[in-house]
């Protein structure tokens, strides 16, 4: 935590792709144990923000501070070791590996210094049970359906034993009851002290889960507030309806 008691603090972050400004001077923060939402229309820069936080991309301007430590230039694997874990919106499984082996990668790397090595497989199986994969651990991940791949994305991100979990549209394509199941998982995770950043298009899930929400539109932060405040915000409505 830094001086203001923030777990994660992003200040004045700008990310360009060539001449295109994907994120323009965006600041946001995450408190310890907080459940944060990040919403906005397609192409507004949500995933780019996650890429800059996780280190998959490097921002040109601004800083990212985690637990008081500047991590702006740190490679992604170091950030994962520190406890920042993310899922990918477009699933990126390790295709030649089984479901269980997919789980063991973050355990043997990101969480290596934090978790008793002898318990890896048990812990992996526990997490797999959460998403209903307990009987499919040996199945090859290359043949999974899109929906299953999303579940694996979430499970694998959890296997890194994160302090901050960033879930990038983990619920897309899930049925209504599956969405509730995932929300349940995320609530439990949060109770154990994990802060969560949820990117989601399913408003019902975001409004139910998040304590505070940021809204991005075309690379700009246009609103911040509680779910109630966001729902009543005319700027947000305009951004979504594309007026």
């Amino acid at each position: 935590m830094d001086a203001n008691g923030r777990l994660l603090d992003v200040q004045g972050l700008t990310k360009r792709f060539g001449g295109f400004v994907a994120l323009n001077n965006v600041s946001m923060h995450l408190d310890p144990r907080e459940r944060l939402g990040l919403i906005g229309p397609n192409g507004s820069g949500k995933t780019t923000m996650i890429n800059c936080i996780s280190g998959a991309l490097f921002n040109e301007e601004g800083s990212v501070v985690f637990r008081g430590e500047e991590i702006t230039g740190l490679p992604a694997f170091k950030r994962a070791e520190l406890g920042i874990s993310r899922s990918f919106q477009i699933p990126r499984p390790f295709r030649t590996m089984s479901i269980l082996e997919n789980m063991l990668v973050p355990m043997e790397y990101a969480a290596w210094g934090r978790v008793d090595h002898a318990t890896h497989e048990d812990r992996a199986m526990e997490i797999l049970a959460l998403v209903g994969f307990q009987d499919r651990a040996r199945e090859n991940s290359g043949n999974l359906t899109q929906v299953d791949l999303r579940k694996l994305e979430l499970a694998r991100a959890l296997a890194a034993q994160p302090d901050v979990l960033v879930s990038d549209e983990s619920m897309a394509g899930l049925s209504s009851s599956e969405v509730d199941e995932v929300l349940e998982i995320l609530f439990k995770l949060n109770e154990r002290g994990v802060a969560v950043i949820m990117i989601e298009h399913i408003m019902r899930a975001v409004m139910r889960y998040c304590e505070r929400i940021y809204v991005l539109d075309a690379g700009q932060l246009i609103a911040e507030g509680t779910p109630e405040e966001i729902q009543g915000n005319p700027d947000v409505e305009r951004a979504y309806l594309g007026e």
């Binding site: 280190g55 992604a76 694997f77 990918f88 499984p93 390790f94 990668v105 969480a111």
Partner: peptide, 12 residues
């Protein structure tokens, strides 16, 4: 299998 995913899972 996937270098970006590997890096984000803590693989140096």
């Amino acid at each position: 299998d996937d270098e970006t995913a590997a890096e984000c899972m803590g693989v140096p």
